[in-house]
Amino acid sequence: MKRFIIICTMELKLFTREFFGFFFALVFPVLMLVLFGSIYGNTPIYPGADAKVMDVSVPAYSVMVIGVTGLMSLPLTLSNCKEKKIYKRFDATPVGKKNIISAQIFVNFLMTLVGICILIAAGKILYHIQIKGTFLSICICLLLSTAAMFSLGFLLTAIGRDLKSTNLLCYLFYFIMLFLSGATMPDMLFPDTIKKISNLLPMTHAVDLMQGAFAGESLTLHKMELLILGALTVICAAVGATLYSKKDWT
């Protein structure tokens, strides 16, 4: 356990030294919140609506944080370490690559939580956002959304032949989902065609689920999202693991 903590501490330091992950997971979502907050304020999402713009933006931006760690930071770390044979070096120690990969997953999860906590704190302090959902239901939705995005990111590293192609896949998936899922701008603004595409994206379901959980909606209203994200987690992890078992780590 002590050894795992040392590895995690090291991975945490490395995470904070990478500008992309650090900025886009911890700083950028708060900047977005402040930017859109300064434009719209915490007004109702439509006249007479109970929910306010910032109340729904915080859970949406939370998914943006999950997207950064799950679709960019973690997969690019995995792919980089594999390509540069960093895992091979760790495999030649009593610790092995599994411990390093576990630590990398843990640190990315931890930074997801930190990013979301910063976001919630900023929302509470600056815009007095209301979180009506229970801690448990938010945790369940957060864990499932994170598992789905991490699993998808893992699959992308398994599909990518090298760091370059994995980079391309990750950027493609991340930015398409970022702009079309409702994580950055409300999907109610989208035209019908874009809405149809949006409904096919896993991140859209994560946004809907998180917004529902924050709004205090019963999880039974989100069976479809739970099912889609759960299935995505299992399928991507299984296919990714199968593809990885055929890869040469040496």
Binding site: K13, L14, E18, C81, K84, K85, I86, R89, A92, T93
Partner: peptide, 17 residues
């Protein structure tokens, strides 16, 4: 590996460590 030390031919370490 508790008793074997290894120096690999081609290896890199995390660049920012």
């Amino acid at each position: 590996y508790k008793e074997m030390g290894i120096q690999l031919q081609e290896v890199e370490y995390p660049s920012k460590i």
